[in-house]
Nucleic acid binder design. Structure first.
Lengths: 218, 218
DNA sequence: GGGGGAGTCAAACGATCGTTTTGTTTTGTG
DNA sequence: CACAAAACAAAACGATCGTTTGACTCCCCC
């Protein structure tokens, strides 16, 4: 099978033994889901990596499906809150540029990969996109829709000559570029001589410049 | 489990009973991999959808892993050939525009979803991106690298004032946008009153306009 | 017309999956 | 301290996974 051996991961998961069992499971699940997918990561691998008993998942989360949702919720709530906070500072103001709004959209996502250890989450998200599952789609729309609507409204304000259809299309393409870049598949890898912070700043700059130009295409 | 019931797919796979067993398997595999992922699609579902015996996969392909590779190879070869043919007609010529090269890059991918029934392949590709597997990455680089290098060279010719790093970044972002749009996750769905051909043409137009602006950002 | 590889088939293999059960330990509270 | 609830642990459950086996059919070629 497509199985990469478990030992070949090469780096141990940082099992914070002081954290609660629930947190340990969530952290290990996020990492394992990102690496092996939702179906590829088994509860036995997962609980072993978290250092908890196999039954703990079903005890604390009810089922593997619920665990998947919780993994999503934890990071999405974080991401949504940061995006909304960033948007609030620039939305509706006269001096606001397209780059400002894009920054509010992109930087919280990039920051997620630095603190909180949520870097792998974007890969999980890319997986969810590819999974194309209707229930997951609905879940994302329910927990994500209001944020996207607010951003869309602000984009519409700054790009008044764009039809609604055009705007939807372009925002969708920006999302695709962001997800792709953040899921880390691209050829672009951080060079060892630039710090994580610097690399993140460069990534944001590239994304924002590209997206701003794409959005305001003639 | 994350299992969508098999019956809920809602549309029967077009099992061309005249095709060879190998072809039937490949076609069914492409559709099922796109819908349920490489690990989510079982050989029993697959062979049932193809109307062949369970053992036929291991007989004709040796293993499920080899089948995955063959599914990739069949479409990638097609896609590569069409992209190279399209690029050849515009590369190096004085009157060539950025849009021409982007068209050579994008349209073959979109066309794949129309004829040959390879529409689901892009979702498979998006999955492969998300899978982030090293062996798959290597496989893609081996079967895809030379095409990307040719396109990169032509982009570099048309965008001489872009640093190599900038160019790599932007091409990567274009790829992300294209994959995302084609994997069909986006909000944009074909409306029932526009034909498939028209919708494809509109998609290509949106993508090319967006990508051209993004690539030639200041 | 008979030998032989190619193809198909039902059946079974061991492994692993998510989940459940049952019993024990820990924790909080009166 | 005693009692109840929460948490943990070991073992087993049935289902499903990819793969293998061995027999049976078909068809081509000597």
């Amino acid at each position: 099978m497509l199985k990469r051996s478990f030992d070949s991961i090469g780096w141990a998961l940082p099992v914070n033994s002081s954290a609660s069992t629930k947190e340990r499971i969530l952290t290990a699940a996020e990492a394992l889901f990102a690496q092996r997918g939702f179906e590829g990561a088994s509860l036995r691998q997962l609980t072993a990596a978290a250092g908890v008993n196999l039954a703990a998942v079903n005890y604390h989360f009810g089922s593997k499906d619920n665990l998947v949702e919780e993994v999503f919720k934890r990071r999405l709530d974080q991401l949504n809150a940061r995006r909304m906070a960033a948007l609030k500072q620039v939305a509706g103001q006269p001096g606001t540029t397209l780059e400002d709004v894009l920054s509010a959209f992109i930087r919280p996502a990039l920051d997620l990969s630095h603190d909180g250890g949520g870097g792998l989450f974007m890969r999980v998200l890319a997986r969810a996109f590819a999974d194309h599952d209707d229930s997951l789609r609905k879940f994302l729309s329910e927990n994500y829709g209001h944020v996207m609507r607010q951003f869309t409204a602000e984009f519409a304000r700054l790009l008044p000559n764009l039809s609604k259809e055009e705007l939807y299309w372009r925002i969708d393409l920006v999302t695709g570029a962001l997800t792709h870049a953040m899921s880390g598949f691209g050829i672009i890898q951080r060079k060892s001589d630039v710090s994580e912070t610097t690399h993140r700043e460069q990534t944001a700059a590239h994304l924002i410049r590209f997206a701003a130009a794409g959005l305001s295409a003639p």
